[in-house]
Structures are given as C-alpha cells and as structure tokens.
Design a protein around this nucleic acid. Structure first.
Lengths: 174, 174
DNA sequence: ACGGACATGTAATAAGTTACATGATTAT
DNA sequence: ATAATCATGTAACTTATTACATGTCCGT
C-alpha cells in the first residue's frame, strides 16, 4: 500500500513536476502561486520533504550547495502518489473567519471598536483586491485559464467581503 | 501581566458569559452558533479549559456530575482577559481553499474528474445555503442583528462560490 | 440485568507557527 | 576586511485532529 500524503506534501509533489528544486525554492514558488489560497511555511516544506524522501517519493538530485541546499527530484512512485492524491475528494474546508468572530461578540466591544476593526479589514481586502485586479489587467494569465480561475475566485471573494461590510456589517453600528 | 489567550480560549470565555457550563456543553453550544465560522473540537475545548483554570480565568462551579463533568464559571480576571482579547486586532485569516488547489492542478486530473469535484462541491454549498436561507426565513435572528450579519456572510459566501463554479470553473472544462 | 447506543473525557498523532542558529553575500 | 543583510535550514513550541477508553443511560 503506497503511503498517503497530506495536502502540503501533495502540493510539493505537484510543484516538483516542473523540475527538481530545493526546499527553499519550493517554498518561494509555492508562496507566489498557490500562496493566496494555500498557505505553507518553510518548516512544513522541509518536514514534508524529509517525509517524502523517507518514503521514496522524492530523492536528492546532485550535490548539496551552500548550506545544505540540495535539490530534490520526483521519483516514479512519487508521481503515482501525486496522481492519486490530486484526484482525491476535496478535503473539508477549514472555517476560521476572524472578522465574523468579532462581529459575533460585537456586544462585548467598546463603542466604536467594531467600526475600527471593520474599517481596517476593509482596507486590507481592498488592497488585496487591487493587486488581484492588476494581475488580471496585466493579462499574464491568458494562457493559464485554470490559474486565472483561481484569481477570479480571489477577486469575487474580496468583492463579496467588501460588499458585506458596506451593506451589512457597518450599518449594524449606527 | 495577565496571561494571553488564543482565539479558542477567548471564545470559551465569551460563552461563559451566558452562565457556567461544562466542557461538553461549551463544545455543543459553540458548534451550533459560531461553529459555522469558527471550528473547534472537544479536545481543544478541554485543553483550553484546563489552561484557563490553571491561569485562574475560570474556576470549577459545584460538584462534578457523571464522568468528571464539572461546570466552570468565569472569574473576575477571566472577564478582564476576555474584554481585552475580544477587542484586539483581527488575526490573519488562514487561507486554505481546497477547491482552488484542485483547480490549480486541473491539468494533472484525469478527464472528467474536475467536473465531478466541482459538482460535488457545488451540491454541498447549495445544501448549506439552503439551511442558511431557512434560518433567515424563520426570522429567529430578528432580535440579534450581529448574529444575523454573520449568517448573511455565510449566505453571500455560498452564493459567491456557486456563481464562481457556474460562471468560471465549470466553463473551464468543456 | 444485559446489550447497545450515546455521552464524556483523554491520550496519541499530525500539522502549523515562531524563534533560533549559522553560513553566504553584499555594501562600505 | 568588517559589518550588515539576506538565505537557508532546524528546533521548540502551540494548535488541531483522530483515535481511544470508559462511564452512563435506555430499552428489552
């Protein structure tokens, strides 16, 4: 029975399809692409790389460079495990929405504090939305419709949150 | 210097404002109300209750019942810590959206699999939306506008996801 | 009073975050 | 050449999930 991998390890295997990479590189690349909807940290990447190596799903490729920087490459079993992992049923989505928790406890907040929290949050989302829209305008994702779709999700989500703040949450206060 | 608490512990303190409760009760109540946007598990609740008791923010109230079921009550320092916790800046929102990860790796999926995943996901969200709309229709939240606002967020989020699947993700496939 | 379901808590494991150590690189 | 910064990995700690153990209650 082939070893199971978690989503972080699965993602690593996915990224190794673009060629060998070190832990550092992987973390950089992952942060820049899937980072917007799939957080990982350096520590996790190194830990999972270690586990993947132990299980023979990746192997070192060439001599270590500065520090202990050594590139890893996919093995054949690694590819197979990835194929199965990526096609699995969707995991349950973690539900942790801090702004809703604050809203829920609104009665316990000092006057004006909820408004501040909402305004800060709105500003952050607005900034994020601006970045997404820039990327969209730039048209760099024209050849990658699936990636563009994830971007579109980000845009719509940000717009939803902003509208919720404006239409629902802020009016709550006055 | 008063001890810091994490969001789960803070939430527990918040719920204890409604009167003493056992770990089990807390978990039940929390799952039913904030559970839709703030997941917790039994184990966490017991762990945090233990920590809160150690720090003197809650204390046992009355004799233990069946099992070791004993109710906890807020202490005065507990109230103070809660007040500060609830007014803090919002934590960063964890970003983990499984359906986007699947979409990102669409090219690696066997034909038809992405469609299946999207359809399943859509069905789940649709069911969730139906529940939310029922609650809204029932009007039980008329007297609790802040809670109603969190419900509204859930509704809009679900609608956003469904629209994204229909407008953006599904068309990707054919 | 026995078997099965449910309630309740705990222990084991996995995942995620933060803080740390140290080797390279760049600027003065 | 030294200091300052950045790259890179690791270790310590916290949080979250899953599996387990056992007690209680209910129907027969």
């Amino acid at each position: 029975m082939p070893p199971a991998v978690n989503a972080t390890a699965g993602t690593i295997l996915g990224f190794l399809h673009d060629g060998p990479a070190t832990g550092w590189d992987l973390q950089q690349r992952m942060a820049r692409s899937v980072g917007n909807f799939w957080n990982t940290t350096r520590s996790q990447v190194y830990r999972e790389l270690g586990a993947l190596e132990r299980d023979g799903l990746v192997e070192r490729d060439g001599e270590p460079g500065p520090h202990d920087r050594s590139p890893f490459r996919l093995t054949r079993p690694g590819r197979a495990v990835f194929r199965r992992w990526v096609a699995r049923d969707l995991d349950a989505e973690p539900r942790r929405v801090p702004v809703l928790l604050a809203t829920f406890f609104a009665d316990h907040l000092p006057p004006g504090r909820l408004a501040e929290l909402l305004d800060d949050h709105r500003a952050e989302i607005e900034a994020e939305l601006a970045v997404y829209l820039d990327v969209k305008e730039a048209g760099v994702l024209a050849g990658a419709p699936a990636i563009a779709a994830t971007l579109e999700y980000g845009i719509r989500n940000a717009e939803m949150v902003i509208a919720w703040i404006d239409d629902v949450a802020r009016p709550l206060i006055d």
